[in-house]
Amino acid sequence: MIGRIWALALVTFKEGLRDRSLYGIFLFALFVLGLNVLVAGFFMRDLGKVTVDMNLSALSFAGLLLVFFIGINLMAKDIDKKTIHLVLSKPFSRGEYIWGKFTGLVMFVGATQLVLLVFSSATVAVVRWMYPNFFAGFSWGIFITAVFFVFLQHVLLCAIVVFFSSLTSSSFISLIFSLASYIVGITLEEVVFYLRTPTANEEVAGAEFLQRSLEVVTWLVPNFAAFDFKLEAAHGLALEFSHLGVTFGYACLYIMLLLILASVIFSRREFN
């Protein structure tokens, strides 16, 4: 079983790495990083913060592009173009297919993020070397942790992509649904906490009801904002271990449940 999952993951990973959009995304990320070095001098005080901000945002955005433009295709195209007929004619169970694809996606996103991290660290090091006085609060540990959680966010997104691809045969539909989940997940927190304030109760009609329904949404859609440690990294604020642990566990459990659900749905699917 592990052998089959690994085999499929490897194929998926290679397919992803050889997609030519990858170069475009890399160029984009490198462009932002280069820009960072150039504009660093424009800022007067918060130079270290801006550098970390830009680096993390570049990594995070590049990751999103990777998942949405290449990652989606890695699974959805299989089904769209019926390559899956070929794969499932080998002794894969449907669950193994799901986990294999997911593992491959994660490997792909992880490898690309790792490469970007190298570039990004180099940028930070360069800017820090150029303006050593403005990095008082900076800590590599926190920076790397923040990058890891950006990555975790992408892993979560991969699970969502796999889930929606297991539902539909159209890569476009899974793209739309995954994108929607991401947008909901990233804004959810703002809305939920806004509705909890007393102001909202006076201003928004049916705030109570909205709050109830959003409560349900918080169980279904992951809170992507929780993985954002950009602020801490930018200001070098210490991260609490328990805080990180809960976030990590949350992501793992969400992924596991989602993939189990995807496997169940996928087992019932037919490929005509």
């Binding site: 052998g3 089959r4 690994w6 085999a7 490897l10 194929v11 397919e15 070929l86 794969v87 080998k90």
Partner: peptide, 24 residues
């Protein structure tokens, strides 16, 4: 299959290695 659509970016060798690994 009827119109085999294989993975675009793999080489034949990699495709066959996949088939072999998948069947143990």
């Amino acid at each position: 299959p009827e119109n085999p659509y294989l993975y675009d970016h793999l080489t034949l060798k990699e495709l066959l290695f996949f088939a072999g690994r998948a069947t143990g």
